[in-house]
């Protein structure tokens, strides 16, 4: 008798997990001794929804400043109580990466593929300076009872964007005379970072200089090696500690820092110095233009 009681209690516990059709069969076939009808009461509880699928996001090419980049994707949520139990207004997505500001966005209902699932579309805006590398995708949605379905098991890649602009397209010096030393460029060249490439983390600023040729007597030159360049941190001593430039060769300027970030926080100034104007060159303009233009790059 004791065994039967235990079994009855066990059955009462497992029955909610079995289909309702089994109760009908139970009523028909089983008569507990002494034979007497028994009331059965089952509460179907609210089950937390789940995230079934997050559509993969191909590698993202960021737009350069000042634009943002809209990353669009979908995810599927499932609720065993019915799709109508999902609260569309709570659907949201976020992209995260350690050390980066998390990008978030609400998501909108897109379609209902069956009675228990809904597909949501999310558009998350990323900034031009968001770090390159692997980002995590997080999505979540609640049901009407406030139970949450969340997933952050998917990732995607943000590509590396090299994009800089120069404040002016020329490097100008005041008038000089043979044997003059340590003449600094009239205004520094400001480099603005419009992408997510970071100096010196991802590489350096490089200058490819060319000898300045006489505009009248082409054979007379001011060699590129008579120039030095530096970043903001070395302006005061550019003529002595700046990096010497080399004709036709890209030279890294190690003193430069070009951060990625919003406008105003993403610039570096390059200052140049002529350490010596060669002796014996004639009075004329010397320049490097066209195919001999100096190349500033990353």
């Amino acid at each position: 008798m004791k065994k039967e009681i235990i079994l009855i209690i066990f059955l009462a516990l497992v029955m909610p997990l079995v289909s309702a059709g089994l109760f009908d069969w139970l009523k028909e076939k089983v008569q507990l001794a002494p034979a007497q009808p028994t009331d059965v009461r089952v509460q179907v509880r609210n089950i937390a929804p789940t995230i079934e699928n997050i559509n993969s996001i191909p590698a993202v090419n960021l737009n350069p400043a000042p634009s943002t980049t809209s990353v669009i994707f979908t995810f599927t949520a499932r609720d065993r109580n019915s799709a109508a139990d999902l609260n569309d207004a709570t659907a949201s997505a976020n992209f995260s990466k350690i050390g980066e500001q998390t990008r978030t966005s609400p998501c909108t209902f897109q379609s209902q593929p069956n009675s228990r699932e809904k597909i949501y579309q999310c558009t998350v805006n990323m900034q031009y300076y968001d770090d390159a590398g692997t980002w995590s995708i997080g999505v979540n949605v609640q049901d009407q009872g406030g139970l949450v379905a969340a997933s952050s098991s998917s990732t995607f890649t943000v590509n590396l964007l090299r994009d800089i602009t120069l404040s002016q397209a020329t490097i100008n010096f005041p008038s000089v005379a043979p044997e003059d030393v340590d003449i600094i460029s009239t205004i520094p060249t400001t480099i603005a970072n419009n992408g997510n490439f970071e100096v010196p983390v991802d590489g350096n600023i490089r200058i490819t200089a060319f000898d300045l040729q006489g505009e009248t007597t082409l054979s007379e030159i001011i060699p590129a090696s008579n120039f030095r360049a530096t970043g903001n941190s070395g302006i005061a001593t550019v003529c002595s500690t700046g990096t010497p430039l080399v004709d036709s060769i890209a030279v890294s300027i190690p003193s430069t820092i070009l951060p990625r970030g919003p406008a105003g926080s993403n610039t570096e100034d390059i200052t140049n110095c002529i350490t010596l104007v060669p002796i014996g060159i004639s009075n004329q303009f010397y320049s490097a233009t066209g195919g001999r233009a100096w190349i500033i790059g990353i």
């Binding site: 120069l166 397209a169 490097i171 100008n172 300045l212 233009t289 195919g291 233009a293 190349i295 500033i296």
Partner: peptide
């Protein structure tokens, strides 16, 4: 990557270039 069209005036013309590695 270098610009193919450079027509500025000045002592030293500066252009942007990238070395993608």
């Amino acid at each position: 990557i270098k610009p193919s069209n450079t027509q500025q005036e000045g002592n030293i013309q500066a252009v942007i270039g990238y070395d993608v590695e």
